[in-house]
């Protein structure tokens, strides 16, 4: 998947090689996840159905944010604002949802729309500024991180919004054969993301931009449009993530989501997406998010102290990147 067909036509035989490489890369992360699960399965309760439900619930928000983050990182960008924007989207949606006199169903619908619109707004802002003035997205999103957080605090005057419609609150804990409904929604988003990135011209161009922006430009692609689009897609997912947060915890507050961007970046990187862009996949991101979730859950079940847990999570991130370097060499050979 790390090759691009933008500048030169690819020989047919090369697709087989590419597929092999992809399998190798995905398998690597998959094997790591399976190994983790095997290790933890020796602790009591880890494989119990209620614990599996818990892990999937806990993975969901990070997974949704990571899908959007994958799009941004693939074009060689980064979005540090997702945690703050999630909080902003949540307080906007929370305000709409608790407006007096609205029918609950209408309130939830309008709230969902408003969260996504708020997410799109910040996504556009990030994309337009970084693409128009060619400013590194690291800096632009560092700015919007503060803007969104400040805006969320301003809108709510730092207070927590609660008392959502009962049906909405119940929706967040519903399961389908032990699988949380919220996780199923995330899986649908994974499938859409996978389709867009692998089966559409749009997706191929995103990889191309990440590999060689100048080449993509010379090939006649509107790089500006694609960059803005990647950040906007990320914004949509942050808006959806905000609604999922509210459904799960039944509150919206301007101090939620602190550090979520780092977890999303970690999931994407553990999933084998290159920070310099052009290489990676949504399936990898799904596995990366699962690794983080399984690790956080399993280490508590093992009874490890909070501080040890934090250290081990750090080691795993570094280990994943080192492994990725070897995979890269392996697949290039």
């Amino acid at each position: 998947m790390d090759t691009t067909d933008l500048t030169t036509a690819q020989a047919g035989s090369k697709t087989i090689a590419t597929t092999t490489k992809t399998v190798l890369r995905e398998a690597g992360i998959g094997i790591a996840l399976i190994a983790l699960i095997i290790v933890f399965s020796f602790t009591p309760h880890f494989l119990s159905s209620s614990n599996v439900t818990n892990i999937l619930t806990q993975v969901t928000i990070n997974l949704v944010l990571s899908i959007g983050m994958t799009f941004v990182i693939l074009i060689g960008g980064i979005d540090l604002s997702v945690g703050s924007v999630l909080s902003f989207c949540a307080v906007v949606a929370g305000t709409v949802m608790t407006l007096p006199g609205l029918d609950p169903a209408v309130a939830v619908f309008l709230a969902t729309i408003s969260a996504i619109v708020a997410g799109i707004g910040f996504g556009l802002l990030n994309g337009l500024i970084s693409a128009w003035w060619a400013i590194p997205s690291f800096i632009v999103t560092l700015g919007t991180l503060n803007i969104a957080r400040g805006a969320a605090l301003q809108v709510t005057n730092a207070s927590t919004i609660y008392s959502f419609p009962a049906a909405f609150n119940a929706f967040g804990s519903q399961t389908f054969y032990g699988i949380p409904l919220l996780f199923l929604i995330a899986l649908v988003l994974v499938a859409i993301g996978w389709f867009v990135l692998t089966k559409t011209v749009f997706g191929r161009v995103l990889y191309g931009i990440g590999n060689n922006e100048e080449a993509a430009r010379l090939a006649g692609h509107n790089v500006f449009f694609y960059k803005v689009a990647a950040f906007t897609i990320c914004g949509v997912l942050v808006g959806i993530g905000a609604i999922i947060y509210m459904a799960r915890l039944n509150i919206a507050s301007p101090i939620i989501g602190i550090g979520f961007e780092l977890n999303a970046i970690a999931a994407v990187i553990i999933g084998g997406t290159s920070l310099s862009g052009g290489r990676g996949s949504i399936v990898g991101t799904l596995l990366g998010a699962c690794i983080i979730g399984v690790l956080a859950n399993g280490l508590i079940l093992l009874g490890l102290s909070d501080f040890m847990r934090q250290m081990i999570t750090g080691f795993v991130i570094i280990l994943a990147v080192i492994l990725d370097k070897y995979r890269e060499r392996l697949t290039k050979a």
């Binding site: 009591p44 508590i300 079940l301 009874g303």
Partner: peptide, 9 residues
């Protein structure tokens, strides 16, 4: 998250 996991353990 932390309490859900404690409850499992």
């Amino acid at each position: 998250t932390v309490f859900s996991n404690m409850l499992t353990a």
